[in-house]
Design a protein around this nucleic acid. Sequence first.
DNA 1: TTGAATTTAATTGCATACAACCAAATTAGC
DNA 2: GCTAATTTGGTTGTATGCAATTAAATTCAA
Lengths: 157, 157
Amino acid sequence: MTEKKYRDDDAVLKLENQLCFAVYACSREIIKRYRPHLDALGITYTQYITMMVLWEETTISAKVLGERLLLDSGTLTPLLKKLEKQGYITRQRSDEDERLLMITLTDAGQALKTSAAEIPYKIACDVGLELTEGIALREKLKQLTKDIREGNCEYSK
Amino acid sequence: MTEKKYRDDDAVLKLENQLCFAVYACSREIIKRYRPHLDALGITYTQYITMMVLWEETTISAKVLGERLLLDSGTLTPLLKKLEKQGYITRQRSDEDERLLMITLTDAGQALKTSAAEIPYKIACDVGLELTEGIALREKLKQLTKDIREGNCEYSK
DNA sequence: TTGAATTTAATTGCATACAACCAAATTAGC
DNA sequence: GCTAATTTGGTTGTATGCAATTAAATTCAA
């Protein structure tokens, strides 16, 4: 039983036992699957989820966009400039508050939605999860993300 | 019902409905939680999971290491050079096959494991999942990663 | 009302990720 | 044995991610 205890202590630092690595690896593999479909549209994965927010909102401040995507300005600023250069969005300061950078979907950006519409179906096929199972997994991950962000554990600062 | 159909079509491109974004966002938030603990050790998250494999194997080829971590040489090569510079590993060509770069844990690398041993417990506290629930989520993600990599769907190339 | 605190983007620096390409070593066929 | 194909790392270029800092605009407070 001493030996068993030894193995258990070691187990917490084994890669295969890490939830973090399971999430991290899965994320990268999923995004890799999107690439060929997104290459056809000329956008990256991060640009794709950014456009997704714009297809819902049409106009949104960079700050709120960052909150939705959980990305900060260091990531968003260059990404939004690229989307502007590609003609999918416009970037202009708010009249009421010059600090706010308002992002607006262009007609070309709206048109891109039509091209993107088939992607989720193609990916769903890859994933091979039942719809209800996929939804359950997604909601579990959302809850986990929320818990981690709120961090109600005093142990870790 | 026409209106309902319209809403359903739109739903597939909504950010909140994407499993990919749930995984992607969760991954980044988890890694963000690791940062303060890993900063104390002077390593990054990717270096941490790399060391995790070395703590199990002691010696491993760069190729097999990449297969374990699902990372390619473009990511691993500079990362391993940094770990070598920090004294945690050695990099040397195999005698039998000069193409193979053998990575070996040093004493300092082994010692680092002791410092890292508490991290999983601290993170587990943040995550706030029941053990069995965390295991279930982890295994679900592993299966999903496997399915995506194998990609038994002819629809997406 | 005016100087301090706050908010919001942008910038900088560092560390991934990964596709595409390249070079060296090895193996396979003939 | 010798050449072609394969294997394995390394390099390059592009695009994130994110902490830390800066700068401009706005709000708050005495």
